[in-house]
């Protein structure tokens, strides 16, 4: 099918984009890589009257280090993150996650900002940004604000962004000391989206004692979430197979899990636990 009719505008600056959004807040959608929005429009699930293409705005695609943080522009493509040699050294979870997204075409067009702002419950990035204790920088009429990743994902396809706000940047703290990161995923066989995706970010002391664990899980519930039960079980303890097993039993604590044709809620709970355990052990192995 073809989308309904819509207007298309490609502003040159972020300010222009925000003004356009302000003028058309309820009829307009921002177009980034288009890999979620365009399919939805073709199915006529989304019928925006206007597309504001932010792809022509300069300086929205970058990966930088600044003030102990990694700064990622909203329009940075999955491929740019996947192929960054620097990220592979300083934050391997980002390129690893990017490599799990869709296929080469999707990764060449799709953007991290677009994915996060869409808040698809089965997208990969939300788990990783939570596990990295990231922040989202949003620009609006009255300037900028930062939102913690934990507070950013509100519900299915709903974020903390205001109607007249644009996700401009993602910030991730640089990891200090001995660290291990991993992303494990069960991809949906048709769409490649996460049936379950688990991102684990460990900071380890001597004797393999976990100083801080950060675990983000996607695909399992209406939105990506932080698995605090797992983190609490890991923190302050020596990581080994037995601990990974007992900690991962908390991976779905207090969460209502999705059930669908590929995986019932019970099976998803099982997958979340198995893949959390695998992610912990994989991250631990990376840190060694």
């Amino acid at each position: 099918m073809i989308p309904t009719q819509f207007d298309y505008i490609a502003p040159a600056t972020l300010d222009e984009a925000i003004q356009l959004l302000a003028d058309n807040a309820y009829d307009a959608k921002l177009l980034a890589g288009g890999h979620s929005l365009i399919p939805a429009m073709k199915l006529r699930l989304a019928q925006p009257a206007m597309l504001i293409d932010i792809g022509r705005i300069k300086d929205l695609a970058y990966i930088r280090e600044e003030g102990g943080q990694i700064l990622i522009g909203a329009m940075t493509t999955h491929y740019q993150l996947e192929s960054s040699e620097r990220l592979k050294e300083i934050c391997p979870l980002l390129p690893e996650t990017a490599g799990h997204i869709g296929d080469a075409q999707v990764r060449n067009k799709g953007t991290i900002g677009g994915s996060l702002a869409h808040s698809d419950p089965a997208a990969d990035w939300p788990a990783t940004v939570i596990a990295l204790n990231g922040e989202i920088v949003a620009t609006g009429k009255n300037g900028e604000r930062t939102i913690k990743a934990d507070d950013f994902f509100v519900d299915m396809l709903t974020t903390a962004l205001e109607p007249v706000e644009i996700l401009r940047e993602i910030r991730v703290p640089l990891v200090q000391g001995r660290a291990g990161q991993a992303y494990t995923k069960v991809p949906h066989p048709a769409s490649g989206f996460a049936v379950v995706g688990v991102a684990v970010n460990l900071s380890l002391g001597a004797d393999d004692v976990c100083q801080s664990a950060s675990v983000g899980i996607t695909g399992a519930a209406v939105k990506a979430y932080r698995a605090r039960g797992v983190e609490n079980a890991l923190n302050g303890n020596r990581i080994d197979e037995a601990l990974a097993q007992t900690a991962s039993a908390h991976a779905a604590d207090g969460v209502d899990l999705n059930g669908d044709l590929y995986a019932s809620a019970d099976y998803r709970r099982h997958l979340v636990e198995v893949y959390t355990r695998r992610a912990i052990l994989k991250a631990f192995a990376q840190a060694k």
Binding site: P39, L43, D103, H188, P189, A190, S191, L261, Y262
Partner: peptide, 16 residues
């Protein structure tokens, strides 16, 4: 039909 769409109907691709 639960998912009359290629986004959800599971069929192998070259990857599988």
């Amino acid at each position: 039909h639960k998912f009359p769409s290629l986004l959800e109907y599971k069929s192998p691709t070259t990857l599988e």
